[in-house]
Computed example of a mutant assay.
Amino acid sequence: MMKRDDAVVVEVDYQDGFVPVIYNHEKLETRLVQAIRGFRILDVPIIATTQYAKGLGNTTAAVAEALGDFVPIDKRTFSCTGCPEFMEALEATGRKSVILIGIETHICVQQTALYLMEKGYNVYLIADCLSARFRENHERGLARLADSGATVTTLESILFELLVDSRDPAFRGISDLVKEIW
C-alpha cells in the first residue's frame, strides 16, 4: 500500500501542442484536472513538466489552473529524470512513491518510469490519467511498465488508497470528487 506521506505526483507534458492529437484527450483532460484536485485535497505534492514549451506550447489552461501557482519544469529529455531541475524538485520532496499522470504513455511517461525504478523509486501509473496519440501505444506502454514492475491503477483506486479511512478530514472532498468521476 502506498502511504500518503511518501507519495508525490508527476504530471508529464500535458501541453497545448500535443493535445489535439492525443487519443481521447477531452476525457483525459477532465481526469487530469480531477486528479490534481484530489491530490491537492490530500496534500500530496505535485511536480509538473513540459517538453520543450517554446516549440510545443504551455500546459493546457485547465490543467494549469488546477496546478495553481506551480510553474512546470521545462525539459528537453524525454525522461523527466534527465532534467536536473526535475530531479532536484523530486529529491526535495523526500518521497519515494511516484505517481505518474500525463502524456505520452509509451514515450516520456515510460522512460521516466523506467529510470525512476532504476533509481529505487516505486512507480504508480494511473491508467485513466495517461494517454498517447494512439490507443495501442498507450496500452502497450502500460503493459511494458507493468511487466517492468510499475503498479498500474486507476484514479479512484489511488485516491482511496491514499485516503485510507472515511474518518479522515479529507474524506468529504475526495468523496465529492469521486462522484464527479462516476
Rank of each mutant, 00 (worst) to 15 (best):
M2N: 12
K3P: 02
K3T: 14
K3G: 10
A7Y: 00
A7T: 13
A7E: 07
A7P: 08
A7M: 08
V9S: 09
V10A: 13
V12L: 14
V12Q: 10
D13N: 12
Y14P: 08
Q15V: 05
Q15A: 11
D16I: 09
F18A: 10
F18S: 08
V19K: 15
V19I: 12
V21K: 11
V21Q: 11
I22W: 03
I22E: 04
Y23N: 14
Y23C: 13
N24P: 04
H25W: 08
K27F: 10
K27M: 11
E29F: 08
I36G: 06
F39T: 00
R40G: 09
L42M: 06
V44F: 02
P45E: 09
P45K: 03
A48W: 04
A48E: 10
T49E: 09
T49K: 06
Q51E: 15
L56H: 14
L56P: 02
N58L: 11
V63E: 06
G68V: 01
D69S: 13
D69Q: 12
F70T: 07
P72N: 03
P72L: 02
P72S: 01
P72E: 03
D74R: 03
K75D: 08
T77E: 15
T77Y: 09
S79H: 10
T81K: 00
G82K: 04
G82A: 11
E85D: 15
F86T: 02
F86D: 00
M87R: 11
M87H: 05
G94Y: 04
G94E: 06
I99V: 15
L100D: 10
I103C: 12
E104D: 10
T105W: 01
T105P: 07
I107H: 05
C108K: 06
Q110R: 14
T112S: 14
A113K: 01
L114N: 06
Y115P: 05
Y115F: 09
L116S: 08
L116D: 07
E118F: 01
G120D: 08
G120T: 00
N122G: 13
V123Y: 03
Y124H: 13
Y124Q: 08
L125E: 01
A127E: 14
L130A: 00
A132K: 01
A132F: 02
F134N: 11
F134K: 13
E136R: 04
E136T: 02
E139D: 13
G141T: 01
G141D: 01
L142G: 05
L142W: 00
A143I: 01
A143G: 07
L145Q: 14
D147V: 02
D147E: 15
S148P: 03
S148W: 01
G149T: 02
A150W: 01
A150S: 13
A150I: 00
V152H: 05
L155A: 09
L155H: 05
L155S: 08
S157K: 06
I158G: 05
L159M: 11
F160V: 03
F160Q: 05
E161A: 14
L162T: 01
V164Q: 15
D168R: 00
P169M: 05
A170M: 12
R172T: 08
G173D: 06
G173V: 00
I174A: 05
D176R: 08
V178H: 03
V178D: 07
K179N: 13
K179T: 10
E180W: 07
